[in-house]
Design a protein around this nucleic acid. Structure first.
Lengths: 192, 192
DNA sequence: CAAAGGACTTATCATATGATAAATAATCAT
DNA sequence: ATGATTATTTATCATATGATAAGTCCTTTG
């Protein structure tokens, strides 16, 4: 029996929706610790997502290809949850991959086992409902920014709301995340 | 006691996650029927969202203003659920309004009462978790289309995936939904 | 029915962003 | 360290979309 350190995970859970000890216990039994070095794929394109990850250390991005162009859908760093929703919640293979953008330590939660736990551990279902709600709100806000803000406005908003992303991620990935080419981002940054 | 016809609602629920009769009963006690004529706001900008709507008949849009420009965030028609997530799940006032785009009959579900029911009716929480998951997947897919598809690609995708929207909604609202001006949409439609 | 307003299209010109290429700069592997 | 990738910037030109304006068509309303 190897001990997995789930302290960061449970600290984070505490801030979202506290769960009772028996639920903590149940949850920890379906967690695995996994490590990926920078650049390695955590999950591949075409794989059906059956895992929810929690980032203990480092960071990951979800990305896909459109006509040979690498597009970053999202970044996640310490204390965030990561999953490819369009696969996890539909059971279909994902067109997207998850990649470690730094040397990264993750906790992998088996989603099928988690969903089963929801039957007996009501508080776990509520916890994950709240996590999904938060992710949903974030994507709704992101749609708003992509719908009618200029590339420059989106860049400046990112600079304001998540300056750490700019420090930890290659600009080419930031560019595609913002919905523009790297050259355009460079031009926008160049203007003072 | 006025009888509210919740048949369409429960038929739709059946397709998502069946609930037991006692939960149906509990849910129906927190539902109100409401009617709005075409053009009327169902909820106003600045109002904190405490209602989840189900569309029985007609259709609505969620919209907001960016610098005096009316922007449609989303459309919903028969058998869909509608709420302003960024307000409902955060408790903050919404910058968005909900408007009837046709003469519309809605079922209004009190969200605070619903959230309380989750404590005693586990299946209701699961039902709404699944509804949120589906909405989340839809927004993730929408981000993908806004991130790197051209306006023309987005228009053609809408034409393919939701041709009824084009038939039921003024093009000016479709245009802002697609993230372009009405004039651009008209140009795109004009080509061939 | 007439008038008025709203919806949609078309045209012109302006601009932000894309595509490509080339030059530095930074990072990585041997 | 050295050379080889990879990341970033800068420049030029092309293009999709925006802004504005004008005109047509449709709908509403008195």
């Amino acid at each position: 029996m190897i001990f997995l350190d789930v302290q960061e995970l449970f600290s984070q859970i505490e801030t979202i929706h506290p769960i009772i000890p028996v639920s903590e216990k149940a949850l920890s039994t379906i967690c695995r610790g996994v490590i990926f070095s920078k650049g390695k794929n955590v999950q591949e394109i075409g794989h059906t997502c059956k895992t929810i990850y929690f980032v203990k250390k480092g960071g990951v991005r979800i990305y896909y290809f459109k006509e040979a162009t690498d597009i970053t859908e999202s970044f996640e760093f310490e204390n965030a949850f990561v999953a490819r929703a369009e696969s996890l919640f539909t059971g279909k293979p994902s067109r997207k991959a998850i990649q470690a953008i730094e040397d990264t330590t993750l906790i992998a939660i088996d989603s099928n086992k988690l969903f089963k736990l929801f039957d007996t551990h009501h508080d776990l279902e509520r916890l994950f409902r709240k996590i999904i709600e938060t992710s949903y709100v974030n994507t709704v806000n992101r749609i708003e920014s992509l719908q009618f803000n200029t590339a420059e406005e989106r860049y400046k908003a990112l600079l304001k709301d998540a300056p750490d992303v700019l420090k930890r991620v290659p600009l080419k990935h930031v560019a595609s995340y913002l919905g523009i080419t790297q050259v355009s981002l460079s031009r926008i940054r160049g203007i003072k």
